[in-house]
Structures are given as structure tokens and as C-alpha cells.
């Protein structure tokens, strides 16, 4: 039943210009009030999914609902219930911050008697009061993002869609953007769906992660649970000198060890790195393998992606580069 979810998608397919398959059968449910991250490399289909959910484009096939309203047949009703911040900047940089809020407030149809109050409240909430009367052209990237969030939140949307909300921002600006999003969500119990290719951000800020690659969902779950899919324990990355074959041979004789990635740097999983590392090193050196660098860490979503797709996020992006470039062109041209 689509009605009981904040967002529901069934078998969404989107083909651009008859050739580029951006979405290849996506089915997804987001509960009301949930904080959902959609992660994956560039070209995975995250933006296309969000553009369908926000009624900008129609799916080639499949259905989707936001708060029980169909995104194609009831697009108008969906639009009145959502807030959206696209990946690219969506404010006029030759107007002031205040004017952007005013113009958007009028376009949203916020009544005159409430407009000023809503704008003041949002400027305060986003810490933009002092910059309100400056041209947006003079804003930093973080300020522009907060202005866009202010615009999206003026109407107190029940579902907020953010496409790469912190892309290109420095850590401080990222943290400020997130603190505002989380506070809004706490105050209004809103559902937040965000796209990101920063896996660490998904891990830190979301309750449920949907992982996409090449137009499909490859994994879904709580970040902690997903990381467990790689296995319990620690990951040890070994940066090796020369051929990895000898190293893999040596490692195969170490008990309770799983090779996660056989490419240099080799990634292995052990139950307890502190205890097992000495044996591991002994085995490698005994086989004449020179280790340049050792790293120990907990499994992350990146590792989940590697395990599920057999490649790193960077490799997926490089591999899909031609496809992704064609898709981006198609999206821009509107094919």
C-alpha cells in the first residue's frame, strides 16, 4: 500500500534518449519520519530517482508515490507537500538572499501577511540574517546551501529531498548544513531523503541507507547492519611492494582470515586485528613479501560497496564514466 509510506517506488525504470538506462527497476519504501540516504557512485541513478520523486521527469515505466500521492498523476499534490534542494545551485545570484526568499515565497503562494515572518524566521534559523541584504554572488558555498534550505523549508514540507546537499563544501560548512537539517527534522518530524556519494556522510547521518549502482539497488539497511555484511571484525589493508600473488599465497595460510579485495592494496578481514596482526605479518615476511604500509579500521559502507560490486566507488565511476557522461548530457539536454 503506497499510502502508509512517505516515499514508495515500484519498479521504476528510466531510459534517456532510448539508450541510456539510468534506472533499471528500482523498488523502494521510506517510512514517514525516516532519515534515508541514497548512496552510490556518480552515474548510479540517484539524481534520476530523485527527479522522478520530485515530479520533474516522468519514469519510462513503474510507479512512485510521495505521501500516497502518485508522482505523475497527482504531481500537483506532491509538489505542495515536498521541499527540494537540487545538486546545482538554485538561487539567483544577482539578487540578495532576502529577495530570493521573497520571490520563492510568492511563487510558493505564501500569503502576504505571513511572508515577512516566515522569511525572518528562516533567515534566523539558517544563520543568514546578517547576509540577507547582500547579493548572493558574494555568498560562500555553504551560505548558498543554507539559503536554498531556507527556501525549501519556508513551507514546512513533510518530505524533504536533498540531492548531494554538501557537495563541494568544507567540513565546517557541511556540519552546519547537517545541524540545520537535523534540527528541522526533529522539530517537525519530517521525512528526509538525501543523495550522497560521500559514504561517510550516509553512515553518520542516516537511519537507513539505500546503496545504488548502475540504476539498481544493490543493498539496503541500517548503516551498522550493512557494514556487518562485510563481516564482523576488523579490516586490514596492506599496501604491498610488487606482485600480490605471493602475498595472497601467504595469506591463504593464515587462519580466520578473509580476503575482501585481492588488488593492491590488499584488503583482508580478521576477527581481531590487534591479536592477529603479528601472525599475519610473520606469514607475509616469511614468504618474502615486502609490506609498505598497514592500515587497520572498522568496515565502512565503502567496503560494503566493494564487496557487493567487486569494485571501489572510484572504479565504478571510472568504468561508468562514459555511461555517466552520456547520461549527464542526456539529463541536461532533456532527451
Amino acid at each position: 500500500m503506497p499510502g502508509s509510506f512517505a516515499v514508495r517506488a515500484e519498479n521504476l525504470v528510466k531510459v534517456y534518449e532510448g539508450t541510456v538506462r539510468a534506472l533499471d527497476g528500482v523498488t523502494l519504501s521510506v517510512e514517514e519520519g525516516e532519515l534515508r540516504a541514497i548512496v552510490g557512485p556518480n552515474g548510479a541513478g540517484k539524481t534520476t530517482l530523485m527527479r522522478i520523486l520530485t515530479t520533474q521527469i516522468k519514469p519510462t515505466s513503474g510507479d512512485a508515490w510521495v505521501l500516497g500521492r502518485h508522482v505523475v498523476r497527482e504531481a500537483g499534490k506532491v509538489r505542495s507537500a515536498i521541499g527540494y534542494v537540487p545538486q546545482e545551485f538554485s538561487v539567483w545570484n544577482d539578487l540578495t538572499g532576502y529577495e530570493n526568499l521573497l520571490v520563492y515565497a510568492k511563487l510558493y503562494g505564501i500569503p502576504r501577511d505571513r511572508r515577512k515572518r516566515v522569511i525572518e524566521e528562516m533567515l534566523e534559523f539558517m544563520e543568514l540574517k546578517e547576509a540577507a541584504n547582500r547579493l548572493v554572488r558574494t555568498y560562500s558555498g555553504g551560505m548558498i546551501r543554507r539559503l536554498e534550505l531556507a527556501i525549501a523549508l519556508m513551507v514546512k514540507p513533510r518530505v524533504l529531498f536533498l540531492d548531494e546537499p554538501t557537495i563541494g563544501l568544507d567540513p565546517r560548512a557541511r556540519a552546519l548544513v547537517w545541524s540545520r537539517v537535523l534540527e528541522y527534522r526533529k522539530e517537525y518530524g519530517a521525512t528526509v531523503v538525501f543523495n550522497t556519494h560521500y559514504m561517510d556522510e550516509a553512515e553518520r547521518y542516516s537511519e537507513v541507507v539505500t546503496m545504488m549502482n548502475r540504476g539498481r539497488i544493490v543493498a539496503e539497511g541500517e548503516p551498522g547492519d550493512l557494514a556487518k555484511a562485510v563481516g564482523e571484525g576488523d579490516l586490514v589493508s596492506l599496501s604491498l611492494e610488487g606482485d600480490t600473488a605471493k602475498a595472497l599465497d601467504a595469506l591463504s595460510r593464515v587462519p580466520e582470515l578473509v580476503v575482501v579485495s585481492a588488488k593492491n592494496p590488499v584488503l583482508v578481514r580478521v576477527e581481531n586485528a590487534q591479536r592477529q596482526l603479528p601472525y599475519l605479518m610473520e606469514a607475509l615476511m616469511g614468504n618474502g613479501v615486502r609490506v609498505k604500509e598497514v592500515g587497520i579500521r572498522r568496515p565502512t559502507l565503502e567496503d560494503v560497496f566493494v564487496k557487493l560490486t567487486g569494485m571501489t566507488v572510484e572504479e565504478a565511476e571510472a568504468l561508468g564514466f562514459r555511461g555517466a557522461a552520456a547520461m549527464r548530457r542526456a539529463i541536461r539536454r532533456g532527451g
Binding site: T55, Q56, I82, P86, E88, W92, Y104, Y108, R332
Partner: peptide, 16 residues
């Protein structure tokens, strides 16, 4: 505006 995000944003507003 299509290359920036403005048009995307405008098309998600409750406007015909």
C-alpha cells in the same frame, strides 16, 4: 537556468 538548478527547483514548486 537548466544548467544551474533553478529550473529544476521551479518545476518542483506548486505552480502549473
Amino acid at each position: 537556468e537548466r544548467e544551474s538548478g533553478i529550473l529544476k527547483k521551479v518545476l518542483t514548486l506548486p505552480l502549473s
